Simulated scan of single mutants.
Amino acid sequence: MTDRATAGLRIPTSSRDTTRRRVISDALGDRLFYWLVAGAGFFVLIALGAAALSMAWGGRLAFATFGWRFFYGTEWDPVSRQFAAFVPIYGTLVTSAIAMIIAVPVSLGIAIFLTEVSPRWLRGPVGTAIELLAGIPSIIYGMWGLFIFVPFMSDHVQPWMIDHLGPLPIIGALFDGAPMGIGMLTAGIILGIMVIPFITAVTRDVFMVVPATLKESAYALGSTKWEVVKDVVIPYTRTAVVGGIFLGLGRALGETMAVTFVLGNAHNLSVSLMEPGNSIAAAIANEFTEADSDIYLSSLIALGFVLFVVTFIVLAIAKLMLQRIARQKGE
């Protein structure tokens, strides 16, 4: 009796084969999926390493010829074939710093306005305008800066700064010079305008995911909008906000065309923000086609490697800051 019941419950051979084939197919598909996504992840690392190694290899002649002086020297003379990267490095860092000084508070203000203050009907148009700013090509910013913003700076802004800020004892050296319109200050302002949409987009999105119960609880306790933003919204999202700020900084460090138009492209080291300067990206864009010797070409490629290293250091500092903030929050 038991044998008959057991025989009636046996799974047919065809069904067992189908189940086995399906299990094998699922295992193969899962393994294929694993290798596909793993390949995509490793591709990023391979591409990053290949870019760094290729630039380091291309700049090996400059590094071997000039040594450490390539990083701290100020001469850039294609005729005598003497090259050093300190002036472009200095210009890159100064213009990026000016851009962040302008972009960070403006971006935070726009994001706070869109998420906490603005009426609902106005959020769409302002958000669309921010997205349009992010989509404008950099060469358009450069042309606008050269033909519109540079004359405005030379006629109205720089003369006032030279007259009123130049005589000051501490910061006067930053505003000494002739009102030519072009220079590191102008380039920094243009960069700041370009970076604003990127930081704003990140901060607006993270501000919008703050739980409504947290803000409503603060309002119920009598907090004002400013107190809710200062004590609830920004502390809750500070990790993502810092990440967005450094994302904008990375964008500013590598910008080429807009800076090339308004920076002046002069290899001279000056503290004054009114004087023309140079940046790594602008130097490469301007002079790459003019490189008439191996050492000249190698020096330009070495500049690219320096820019890669500077960007890597900045992003590494950002990662360390984000990890520290996460530890402070107990994450």
Rank of each mutant, 00 (worst) to 15 (best):
G73V: 02
G73H: 01
T74K: 03
T74E: 11
E75Q: 15
D77P: 02
D77I: 04
D77K: 10
D77A: 04
P78E: 00
V79K: 14
S80I: 14
S80M: 15
R81S: 15
R81Y: 05
F83A: 05
A84P: 02
A85M: 07
P88W: 07
Y90M: 08
Y90P: 06
G91F: 07
T92K: 02
L93Y: 05
L93K: 02
L93N: 01
V94W: 02
A97E: 01
A97D: 00
A97L: 06
I98G: 03
I101R: 05
I101C: 10
I101W: 09
I102A: 12
I102W: 10
A103Q: 08
P105L: 03
P105C: 03
V106I: 14
S107N: 01
S107Q: 01
S107D: 01
L108T: 06
L108D: 04
L108G: 05
G109Q: 03
G109A: 13
G109C: 09
A111Q: 03
A111Y: 04
I112C: 02
T115G: 05
V117H: 11
V117E: 04
V117I: 15
P119Q: 11
P119E: 05
P119D: 07
P119I: 10
R120G: 12
R120V: 14
L122W: 14
G124T: 13
G124Q: 12
P125H: 00
V126S: 05
V126L: 15
A129F: 13
A129D: 10
A129V: 15
I130G: 07
I130Y: 03
E131K: 11
L132P: 12
L133C: 09
L133S: 08
I136H: 01
P137I: 09
S138V: 09
S138G: 11
I139W: 10
I139M: 06
I140Y: 13
Y141P: 00
Y141W: 06
G142S: 08
G142Q: 04
M143H: 13
M143W: 15
M143Q: 14
